[in-house]
Design a protein around this nucleic acid. Structure first.
Ligand SMILES: [Zn+2]
Ligand SMILES: [Zn+2]
Ligand SMILES: [Zn+2]
Ligand SMILES: [Zn+2]
Lengths: 153, 153
DNA sequence: AAACAGTATGTTATACTATAACATTGCCGA
DNA sequence: TCGGCAATGTTATAGTATAACATACTGTTT
């Protein structure tokens, strides 16, 4: 689906971007936050909160509030997104440029691709306007099958 | 937000449509199913499963599986939709014509308006195509403020 | 250094959302 | 009437998320 030849690069870039963003905003990119973001970036699928919790401490030494607070922090700063249709979380693939993005979710390989397209956003804004609605946040999640999986099957 | 001068009409229409749809498909529109759909149509907001459960039997005589099975039936037959961003359910406002719909959710008055627009669906399909993605189901939920609430505030 | 404030994390408990598995009931045709 | 199947009931449990309060860490002021 994606084209990351060397996935370690994805992780490093994500962590590097997080470092810079937190520095700029004078936020603390603590060890816990870094570990959670890193776990989320282990692959290009989405991660469930309780799976992250287990990975943080096999013995459940990390408790739910710890995980959810960390996820909240990462979301607030645009470093991860929640996929509402899955109750799961993905790393933002372009945290500084993120705007009006949406998600293509392959239910075969579970990968999630984050996309931006200004004309999609424009279309939605127009549509909202015609309905006299003032949008604040859009959830757009498209479930289906990615090219690789289509080919395989 | 919506323009139902006599909300009873909305409820009756919804129940009537359900009757017809179930008859056509040789499904049983049982008392329970009718009651749940009716409760959901009490207003134009979204309903939480556990609230429906309480209304079904103040003493919690209705248990979760009863409610969720009924909601599943109603969803499968296009009579209600789940709003993933709220974990809540709304009645479908046009069950026979439903196709590529999306939702405008006012976080002020909590009303949910269901909209269809073929050009929105077209735009999304094109976009998916450009990403070589074969979409199966789209979740599009726009949170914001409706005209009435904008005026009021 | 000691006191302090503010942020981050730990801990315990609980709320909220949803499903599995099996029992019972009710409907309908053979 | 019997058998089969769909619907509902029942009990238990899984899965997702937050409230409330305690402790620890970071950096600043005195
Ligand atoms: Zn993003
Ligand atoms: Zn795939
Ligand atoms: Zn609909
Ligand atoms: Zn409103």
């Amino acid at each position: 689906m994606h084209a990351c030849h060397e996935h370690a690069t994805c992780v490093e870039e994500a962590l590097g971007a997080a470092d810079r963003i937190c520095a700029e905003r004078e936020l603390r990119f603590t060890d816990l936050r870094r570990r959670v973001l890193s776990l989320i970036w282990e692959n290009h699928g989405s991660s469930k909160a309780y799976d992250i919790m287990e990975k943080l401490g096999g013995d459940y030494s990390a408790k739910p509030p710890t995980v959810y607070r960390t996820l909240d922090f990462l979301q607030e700063n645009g470093l991860v997104h929640k996929i509402n249709s899955l109750n799961a979380y993905v790393g933002c693939s372009h945290p500084l440029k993120h705007k009006d993005c949406f998600f293509l979710i392959c239910s075969c390989c579970n990968e999630v691709q984050e996309c931006c397209a200004s004309h999609v956003a424009d279309t939605l804004r127009d549509m909202a306007g015609k309905n006299k609605f003032s949008p604040r946040h859009t959830t757009l999640e498209i479930e289906g099958e990615c090219q690789d999986c289509l080919k395989k099957n």
